[in-house]
Structure formats: structure tokens, C-alpha cells
């Protein structure tokens, strides 16, 4: 038996040599991650905005720490961090962040930066929202005639903000879920894709919108309402809850971002001459 196998393998040595070469060549692609690294649980809006691509190489160059960003909705990011699958949490739902700290997962929350939410929709604008500054009134107009509205529906920071706005409008859109109110349960960019496809209204953070390419004839219809304020917070997990976490490097990352230099870098990040995030740690 063994001999039969041996004979067969000998005959196939050319083939096995080829296979071996293929595997060796792929093996060499795997790079040795020599640097210490941290995992940041964060949101799709910050990731899609390109902010990390701009900031992280600078941070790694200065400190020698690699940063691995996992981009999910705020709800999922908080849950993952509670499972200790991240060293740093960078999200945008102040209530969730304060709960996270209160439950003992983080020593404190640092204010990091802000931008604002915007209501976007097609140029045809059937609800005639263009130029408005009252987000709550705009939602009421949409609901009154049942114009299509796409909701993130994924418990993300944007989704939490949107629900808060509906509450201020004293209207429960979920009664119309599947009709004109559509909860798509996906990231910000994918949600805008769907809104564009259906010619529907949706709420977006400004950064994702500015970076977004597939805009079609969509534009910003409502902006400037102070209720559309969108603050981002950053925090690291605690040793008590997550003994395996990389606390010191996580703190280094937070200190770097909230320093004057880090804040300036954030505010200097622009797309088409427009600032996406304003540093507000001080």
C-alpha cells in the first residue's frame, strides 16, 4: 500500500513540484506582522470617508503601532467591543457610549470630533424639502404623503439619530415599514446606493456623502439644523473587563488623536475643499 502510494507520487512529481511552488509563492505574500497592533471597532461612516486611510499611516509612522479598523454599525461595534474583540471603540452615539462607560467597559469617553447629518434626496424632490433647515419638519412632510424613505435599520449611530428625529416629529414610521419606509439593514454607503436606486430620501452623515461617488442626481436637501449635530467619541476598553486587551497602545492611539496635532490633522482632512470632521476634544 505504502509502496503503491510512493510509486504514484513519484510518477506525479512534476505536478507536485508545481503545486508546491504555488503554495510557497502564496506563503511569501503573508507578511510578518512584526509591529504591535490594536483593533479599533468603528463605524462605516468614518471608514468610508477615507479618514483612516489619511490618519493611520501617520500614526503608525510616529509610534510603530499598527491599527486594524473593523467597520460596522455603531450598535455592532459596541457589541463587538463588549465581547472584547477590540481595544478601542470609535463611534457616534453619545447615549450608547455613555452606557458603555457606565457598564465599566471603558474608563471614560473622549470627545473626538463632529460633523453633521444631512437629509439627501433626488433632484426632483417630490416633498419639496430643498433649502430647508428643519429636519423634523422635513420628516413630517415625507410622512404626510408617504414619499419613499430609506432607513439604515441597522442600529448604527445614524439609525439611532434618525429614530430620535422621528420621535421629535411625534411619528412612528415603523408602522409603514416595507411600504414607503424601508429599513435596509446595511452600511451608510450601501444605504445611499439603495436610495439612489429608488429615488428615495435618506439621512446620511456628511463625511460619507462627500466621499460618495455614485451620487447620480442626488443632492443635500436639508442641513444646518442643530439637532443634526453628529459627535464622535473614542474610548478604550478596561483591563478589568478585557484582560487580553492592548491597553497601553490603545491609550497611545487615543492620546495621539486627541492631542493638538491629531486634532489639527482631523480638521485638515478635506474632500473637494470641504472639511469632513471637526476636531473637538478640547
Amino acid at each position: 500500500m505504502a509502496q503503491a502510494v510512493g510509486q504514484y507520487l513519484m510518477k506525479q512529481k512534476t505536478l507536485f513540484a508545481c503545486l508546491g511552488l504555488i503554495f510557497i509563492s502564496f506563503g511569501s505574500v503573508a507578511k510578518g506582522a512584526e509591529n504591535p497592533s490594536i483593533v479599533v471597532q468603528s463605524t462605516t461612516s468614518t471608514k468610508n470617508s477615507g479618514l483612516y486611510d489619511y490618519l493611520l499611516p501617520k500614526f503608525t509612522k510616529e509610534t510603530g503601532i499598527d491599527v486594524h479598523v473593523v467597520a460596522v454599525g455603531t450598535g455592532a461595534a459596541v457589541r463587538n467591543a463588549m465581547n472584547c474583540d477590540g481595544d478601542v471603540l470609535l463611534v457616534h452615539s453619545q447615549q450608547r457610549e455613555e452606557d458603555f462607560v457606565a457598564s465599566g467597559y471603558a474608563p471614560r469617553r473622549y470627545a473626538l470630533m463632529y460633523n453633521d447629518f444631512i437629509l439627501i434626496g433626488p433632484k426632483s424632490d417630490p416633498a419639496q424639502l430643498a433649502g430647508g433647515q428643519d429636519a423634523v419638519a422635513a420628516l413630517r412632510k415625507i410622512a404626510a404623503k408617504g414619499y419613499s424613505f430609506i432607513s439604515r435599520g441597522d442600529d448604527s449611530g445614524t439609525h439611532i439619530k434618525e429614530r430620535a428625529l422621528w420621535q421629535m416629529a411625534a411619528f412612528d414610521p415603523t408602522a409603514h415599514s416595507g411600504d414607503w419606509y424601508r429599513e435596509v439593514g446595511t452600511g451608510m454607503g450601501a444605504t445611499i446606493n439603495i436610495a439612489v436606486g429608488l429615488g428615495a430620501y435618506t439621512l446620511s452623515d456628511r463625511a460619507t456623502w462627500l466621499k460618495f461617488t455614485n451620487k447620480s442626481d442626488f443632492k443635500i436637501l436639508v442641513e444646518g439644523d442643530k439637532r443634526l449635530f453628529n459627535p464622535y467619541g473614542i474610548m478604550r476598553v478596561t483591563k478589568e473587563k478585557c484582560p487580553g486587551a492592548n491597553i497601553s497602545h490603545a491609550q497611545t492611539f487615543i492620546d495621539w488623536l486627541t492631542s493638538n496635532a491629531g486634532q489639527t490633522l482631523i480638521t485638515d482632512y478635506k474632500i473637494d475643499g470641504k472639511t469632513l470632521f471637526f476636531g473637538n476634544s478640547n
Binding site: G189, A190, I192, N193, T213, N214
Partner: peptide, 9 residues
Amino acid sequence: ALETSKGEL
């Protein structure tokens, strides 16, 4: 998936 979500179709 990422490029799609950025609208970079």
C-alpha cells in the same frame, strides 16, 4: 463589498 458601499461601482 467595500467599494460598492462607497459608491465606487
